[in-house]
Design a protein around this nucleic acid. Structure first.
Lengths: 139, 139
DNA sequence: ATATTCAATGCAAATAATTTACATTTGCAT
DNA sequence: ATGCAAATGTAAATTATTTGCATTGAATAT
């Protein structure tokens, strides 16, 4: 639970960070700092820099995952230490998680070929979901 | 050649755009607007907004590929209509192209599963190259 | 409980990449 | 050559994010 999360990351337990974490845990997809500000605003008012600083601290400790998306914004999500990718509709931004990751075997191949230590990868699919495709066909 | 590229994209042939395209063709990796400014500065002086506008126009016409990387900058490269990915060293930014793309089969699977029209995907590997690993071990 | 200390916070200003408004110039079809 | 739409320069605007500095608050020792 959140109570231990902050402590074991050597971060002080403040109401704001607990709230940020609970919003992140409630979210079913990665969200932006702006969205966190919006979602927390009813409970606590908090400066946007506090949110950014908390998110960076949590990402440094690997409690959350920080990723720059193609819209130019940075998205944050709880690090559940499992490995998933996404399929994103470029029109409505619906996101479908992809269970399979076919990349481990390729990674192993790259390691032996290049000598790199591979620390991660980034995979997203882009497309148009059936709903948007139908809407577009009409217009 | 460049001469036809601009014309067939319905873009006017200006010295600046021709120079931008030749720099992109000479580059062996995706480069940023800033780097293009640097590389063209000896030949023609040109406003950075001109570069951005030219790059956006060319990307709209699919002459070049525009992609936001994890350093927060947008990189541009000639669209040779082949499909490659990269392995990037997070320390020195060395980039190794990856020939194989294991994703087509996954794409087909996703199409039948979700009904999406898939328009593209984005894949990058991150790691540390042998040189940087050695340097880091010393320090 | 109290004091102490360093991390966390608010606020405003700074950054940095990219875009834009507007006036001027230039390519290119006629 | 002429005219019009597209391209360009300059400066200012935008937008997401970071930072400096003064203040507050959490955790630890007393």
């Amino acid at each position: 639970m959140i109570n231990n999360t902050l402590k074991s990351a050597n971060l002080k337990q403040t109401k704001k960070r607990i709230l940020i974490l609970s919003v992140l845990e409630a979210a079913s997809t990665p969200i932006t700092a702006e969205e966190i500000a919006e979602l927390t605003s009813k409970d606590i008012k908090m400066s946007i820099s506090t949110i950014y600083r908390a998110l960076n601290a949590l990402a440094d400790k690997n409690v959350i995952i920080k990723a720059l998306h193609q819209d130019g914004k940075t998205y944050y999500e709880i690090n559940n230490h499992t490995h998933t990718h996404s399929l994103l509709c470029t029109l409505c931004n619906e996101r479908i998680p992809i269970e399979a990751c076919p990349l481990e075997s390729l990674e192993n191949h790259l390691v032996s070929e290049t000598g790199y230590t591979i620390t991660g990868h980034n995979l997203e699919f882009f497309g148009i979901c059936p709903k948007c495709a139908a809407k577009k066909a009409k217009s």
